[in-house]
Computed example of a mutant assay.
Amino acid sequence: MPFKMHSIKLEMGDDMEIKKTKLGMGTFIEIQVVDANPEQLRQMEISVDRAFQIFAAVERVCSRFSADSELSKASRKVGVAVQISPVLFETLRFALEMSRLTNGAFDPTIGKTQENIGFNRHYLTGLTINTPIEAKATFRDIILDEAARTMQLLKPAVIDLGAVAKGFAIDMASNELRLFEGFIVNAGGDLYAGGLDESGSPWKIGIEHPDREGHMLGFVRLSNQALCTSGSYERISPNSPGVHHLINARTKRQATQWSSCSIVAPYAMMADAFSTAAFLLEPQDAEELINKANLYGVMFTSDQQIRRIGDGLL
């Protein structure tokens, strides 16, 4: 996270507000905190800075784009049980559970397939990665040992944790801010809304229309909940026009049934992973997945239809 975009302190009646934005994890991260106690201002600034440090730390662990990340180093030791950090272990464990729930449509070993279609450039350095392996591994080739906290790869693989690591970082950053009356941690539209806004109400969050910039599919009111969205419009291959990054690992083809999938969940790693998983599934399977987890989804189909799944929050 090399630079700070802006820092704002505002007085809103009896409330204090801080907003800061930084670049990290391939997107802009904005943190907003509100509190009525002016004596909290210094602590607000300290906690916001710590929250940004968490994003940087998670990126150092989980990035597949950096050869020096913990994930990249561990992945190079095929056939060996490698002890890994709690951050890497927990994100991997959650990703593998999502793989089992979707019978492999969601799969963290999709990284090599993503490299092959052009998603292999570091957003800061511009350097590209072309790992000299074939895309043959599946999630079943990642073995985790909880007692020893180790990871073992049975086959060479490029592991991509993009669908869980950002959500994990949002959750950990949010934990730094819970002593305040209200806050939002927003990483490129994936967010956690804690407490209440400056008016004492749940935060009003818009769900962006995937095809009409500036328009919303609807709004949700959130307090101590996360909202994450996966969309075909988010990342397009520089090598293959029209090809997006959401690839079904079973078919090795991009999912085409949805334009966007937004999920409301109790925490961001769950919302992040379920929005990606639902995007990869056929409508009936996606609906079953969301309902079984007791989540709420707003889905926009490729033929311009809105589908709401679960208990409505709009």
Rank of each mutant, 00 (worst) to 15 (best):
K166P: 08
L127E: 15
G182K: 06
R100M: 11
R178M: 14
R140M: 13
A165M: 08
M172C: 09
A157I: 05
E198L: 10
K155N: 12
T91L: 03
T125K: 06
V78Y: 09
N116V: 05
L88G: 11
T113N: 10
L88N: 11
S66K: 15
S66I: 04
I143G: 05
T109A: 13
G194Q: 01
V78I: 15
N120E: 05
R121K: 15
A148I: 04
L153F: 11
H122C: 10
T109H: 05
G194C: 06
T91W: 00
L127W: 05
T109S: 12
F94T: 04
Q152S: 10
A163E: 00
L101G: 01
L144I: 04
L144T: 06
P132K: 07
A137K: 07
G195V: 01
S174L: 09
E181A: 13
A95G: 08
M98H: 03
N186A: 07
Q152L: 14
N186S: 11
R64K: 15
L161R: 02
L191A: 03
D160N: 12
V82I: 12
V82N: 05
T125H: 08
A148P: 11
D197W: 02
V87M: 07
M172T: 01
R100K: 14
G167H: 03
I142W: 04
D190Q: 05
E90P: 03
I129R: 15
T102H: 03
K155T: 04
E146Y: 07
T131M: 06
A187P: 02
L191E: 00
A173K: 02
E181S: 14
F168S: 06
L154Q: 15
L101H: 11
L191M: 10
N103V: 04
R76Q: 15
L153M: 13
P108N: 11
L101K: 13
F180R: 03
I129E: 13
L124I: 10
E115A: 10
A135E: 14
V87D: 14
G162N: 01
S85N: 12
N175S: 14
G104W: 05
I170V: 15
E97F: 03
Q152A: 11
S85F: 12
R100G: 13
A95S: 14
E176Y: 01
Y123S: 14
E146F: 10
S85C: 10
M98P: 00
M98S: 02
F180Q: 07
E198Y: 13
V185T: 10
G118I: 05
E176I: 06
R100Q: 15
Y192K: 04
A105W: 04
G189R: 07
L101A: 14
V80A: 08
R93L: 10
L88Q: 11
S174H: 07
L196I: 08
D171Q: 09
N116I: 08
P132L: 11
D107P: 08
L154T: 15
Q83E: 15
